[in-house]
């Protein structure tokens, strides 16, 4: 019987740990702006669009129409399109209008996802992986794509931090003071969409919402400034992810994504009660 350490040091576990760090990075950067802008619903909508995109990629690969078409790539295309459409509807800063558009696209892409997944029955494992995540099955190619995507998100958020904050705080004011508010609005949505793809690959479509929104929402409850929100959402997401992996290593039949989801959402409810104002 191998020791826990042996399991934790296997290549697939190491890849999973790296993926957890990547997820925590996007949960802290893109996640905090999602919470600031009240766009948590966008994450759910984009996640389900990404699910449809990934399912389509599997189909194209499976039927030999486009062999080797990456799921991550398919997911990213659908995610970005959904985010841009939602962004167009809400380009003047009306979040309510965006919610309706996202709701409708949610229904559309979810139907599409179910249709496509039902067509890949033979590959049920892969489809299931999209829904609950396959962090333990990541290939090196997957990890490379996820790393590049994460770096883009983190770099862009740090570069445009000031502008993103201004636009999130007050879009009209930002425009009036000379910020290209609409451009930054789109860039922000694009980064959120890319983050959804990173998290989707790790924890699956259902739990994207938990991993991308809950850590920042929890951190936002008690943080006194925006830097603290970023740092704490990173820590919360990281703890959730690592705990998920360790528990999955101890009890083989437990999905790591579920543990991670429970921990980060639990942290939100704890901060909600503790920091009640």
């Amino acid at each position: 019987m191998p020791s826990i350490l042996d399991i934790l040091l296997t290549p697939f576990m190491i890849r999973a740990f790296i993926a957890v760090v990547l997820i925590a990075l996007v949960a802290s950067t893109a996640g905090s702006f999602t919470v600031y802008r009240g766009l948590t619903f966008l994450v759910a909508g984009v996640a389900h669009a990404a699910l449809a995109g990934a399912a389509l990629a599997i189909l194209l690969d499976m039927y030999g129409i486009f062999p080797g078409f990456s799921e991550v790539f398919g997911a990213a295309i659908f995610a970005v399109i959904t985010a841009l459409v939602a962004g167009y509807v809400g380009r003047k800063g009306e979040t309510e209008k965006m919610e309706v558009a996202i709701g409708v696209s949610f229904a559309l892409t979810m139907s599409l996802a179910i249709l496509l997944i039902s067509m890949i029955r033979e590959y049920a494992v892969r489809a299931w992986g999209l829904i609950i995540g396959d962090i333990l099955l990541l290939t090196e190619k997957d990890l490379l794509l996820l790393t590049v995507t994460t770096l883009i998100v983190v770099f862009a958020v740090l570069l445009f931090y000031k502008e993103f904050l201004f636009v999130s705080f007050d879009m009209e004011g930002a425009a009036a003071y000379g910020v290209r508010a609409e451009l930054y609005h789109y860039v922000m949505l694009l980064l959120i969409a890319l983050s959804v793809v990173v998290v989707l690959k790790g924890v699956g479509a259902i739990l994207v919402y938990a991993m991308l929104v809950a850590p920042a929402a929890a951190a936002n409850q008690f943080s006194k400034n925006t830097t603290s929100v970023m740092v704490w959402s990173f820590i919360i997401a990281l703890i959730g992810g690592i705990a998920g992996l360790i528990i999955a290593a101890l009890y083989i039949n437990v999905a790591p994504s579920a543990i991670a989801g429970l921990i980060v959402t639990g942290s939100y409810f704890i901060t909600l009660i503790v920091s009640r104002k």
């Binding site: 600031y36 802008r37 904050l165 705080f169 007050d170 879009m171 936002n220 925006t226 603290s228």
Partner: peptide, 13 residues
Amino acid sequence: PQRERISVNIPIR
């Protein structure tokens, strides 16, 4: 701008 349009969801000083 009108104060109603401003987000108070961000911990900014």
